[in-house]
Design a protein around this nucleic acid. Structure first.
Lengths: 356, 356
DNA sequence: ATTCATTGCACCATCGATTGTGCAGTCTTG
DNA sequence: CAAGACTGCACAATCGATGGTGCAATGAAT
């Protein structure tokens, strides 16, 4: 640690201390010095000095000059569920690996907030933006486009930029089928007993509802009325929906397709008023995987979206954004009840073990 | 949208367009114009122009000049559990409310990574840093101090800066007591049957272990050997610990105090190999609240840390960092089995409802 | 001994904002 | 009507880095 640790050292400080010009110092420290034909000995002298005064470049100044910041943004609806938190965790690892700095922001599914946030991030000259689960991806696209910012949609697709999402239709079919198959042949599920709760009018919800309806009709027949109750992505409105059903029919559906673990939490809220046994024989199929959710007292089937794959693909695509916007779909994985899968934290094991 | 939307407008563009000097434009747009005695009419003219060309200030330039960025950092061990993800969610809301930009980064409990990350954030001239759950808070402090960066510890305390944490000793006593009281008087818990798993050698773990031991000794007596198994904050090492116990004794302890929901996931992994019934009669007390965890088939007691309170207090303290470093302790809340509490997402309800 | 190429570095404008200072014009006062 | 006060704004330095350009010193070639 240098003695003059009052304020951060700049290239000018190092320049004065070494008697070498600031531009040379800069060139050495940012790696362009060979191109500028700086002597090896000069370079190592400066590097030593920089080390001694633990110099680090001012990223704002760098960014101002070069109009690149080293920041990579991820816009998320919310942090607080396992799908999005694992998304953030995975995203972070990728960005760090590339030597850049992740900046994750949540926009609470508010289209205005999404655009404002994009503006804000742009004002920091972020280099890339991953738009995850945006309510209005195309609105964000316009903002990015005007600023010449590379961006990509994930989780929910847009029409103006590449998108990487889960194959929600196919996943939903698999999940719905699996729910139905949980019931024994001698006491099969009837069409009335299978309902879908949660989600709203976004691409993912629509696709899932479509898959749900198709399979339900195919395997159970019956009418579709009342079987689908979009509640928005809120635990509380979901709770009200379960309650309404319960108050009307005196029970819950034998089987429920729940569009998001957030809506699943609404079910918990409802169930809290009753003992376990009241709901011992229901079956739940749920989008997004939550390890604790998988071990509830009744069978819970979950669709785990391939977060790792989505993020990886998005990174591959964002750099070569050639061609017209396409939607890349990745399969999700059905997770049977009582399954504890590994998550992004398991990749950190070495560090964790090392410090136990 | 202005037609010349190729690149972002600057104060110079507006200056040329209006025939007014750039410094005046700047003053108008950053709010200091009254102080600089700019005419109201001039100001509104510029504001109109800015609006028309949808000008937004370049934060890097601002930051470079003023050495403040509007960025507020939160350093987190990991994102991917409900405690930290709700911390991020709450933190975000506070920062946004103050008109600043949150920047959340995870450091995976690696002290080197913590310091490097602090350096990186400093190089972006962040205005404040919230150091959450750091393995080496004092190391991070040194880095911040050298750069004159305001900072505060949360979740885990340091000795060189103010800290806001949970009262883990008291919380642990309450939790341990509650675990013991889950057992009926005619079939009470014995000392051998109560074990603690998880955590490591950090302040929180130590305090919790101390509270656990004190209450255990007080209520159950008996020896303390083998009752405490720190496994680090990893699901996998925790799983191994449960497995070891099981292999040695042919069963799990009747009651377990688990230091973190992350370690609880290890228990799930272990249990996945057996049907529910094998573990129907165990009781788990766990640090950190997870709504799904609360509804598992066996009684789960959870200590919910007051995330909202911690963040609020930290924000109150960080601005007046007077006096010598103190540790502010907040009580946690015991959550009985089968309880679905509200979380930070419930505050977003209006927006969500509005868009259903 | 010239000329020319190469090496090694310094100079300076620039990115887009902020802010201390100065100055012309208008108003007030005695 | 001159002196001072006030109004409204422009000028220019500055934050810390980058990169184009130019120039002196050295070596090579003729």
């Amino acid at each position: 640690m240098a003695n003059d640790s009052k304020k951060k050292a700049t290239i000018y400080d190092l320049s004065v201390l070494s008697g070498i010009s600031a531009s040379t110092v800069s060139a050495v420290l940012n790696g362009t010095w060979r191109k500028r034909r700086i002597k090896e000995s000069t370079a190592s002298l400066i590097r030593a000095l920089a080390e001694e005064h633990n110099y680090t470049a001012n990223r704002q100044a760098q960014g101002l000059r070069s109009s690149r910041s080293g920041l990579v943004g991820l816009m998320l609806p919310v942090y607080d569920n396992r799908y999005f938190s694992s998304m953030a965790q995975t995203f972070e690892a990728y960005v760090r690996e590339r030597g850049q700095c992740p900046i994750v922001v949540s926009t609470t599914r508010d289209p205005d907030e999404e655009r404002r946030t994009a503006e804000t991030l742009i004002s920091y000259s972020i280099d890339q933006l991953f738009i995850c689960g945006a309510t209005d991806p195309d609105g964000v696209h316009d903002v990015c486009k005007a600023a010449g910012l590379r961006h990509i949609n994930i989780d929910l697709p847009g029409t103006k930029a590449h998108s990487v999402i889960s194959d929600n239709y196919e996943g939903s079919r698999v999940l719905t089928k699996a729910i139905i198959e949980q019931f024994p042949a001698d006491n099969p599920l009837s069409a009335d007993d299978l309902c879908l709760f949660g989600g709203r009018n976004d691409h993912a919800s629509r696709e899932r509802i479509r898959g749900f309806r198709d399979i339900k009709l195919e395997l159970l027949g019956g009418s579709l009325d009342d079987a689908v109750q979009p509640t928005g992505y809120s635990p509380e409105t979901a709770r009200l929906a379960y309650e309404r059903f319960f108050n009307k029919t005196g029970r819950l559906p034998r089987a429920m397709f729940i569009n998001s673990s957030i809506n699943f939490e609404g079910l918990l809220r409802f169930m809290a008023g009753y003992p376990h046994e009241v709901f011992a024989d229901i079956v739940v199929g749920c989008y997004d995987y939550d390890p604790f959710g998988s071990f509830l007292p009744f069978p819970v089937l979950m669709m785990r979206q391939d977060v790792e794959g989505i993020v990886r693909t998005a990174f591959e695509l964002i750099d070569n954004a050639a061609g017209k916007p396409e939607i890349h779909m990745l399969p999700s994985r059905l997770v049977l009840p009582r399954t504890a899968l590994e998550g992004p934290l398991d990749k950190l094991r070495d560090v964790l073990l090392g410090n136990v």
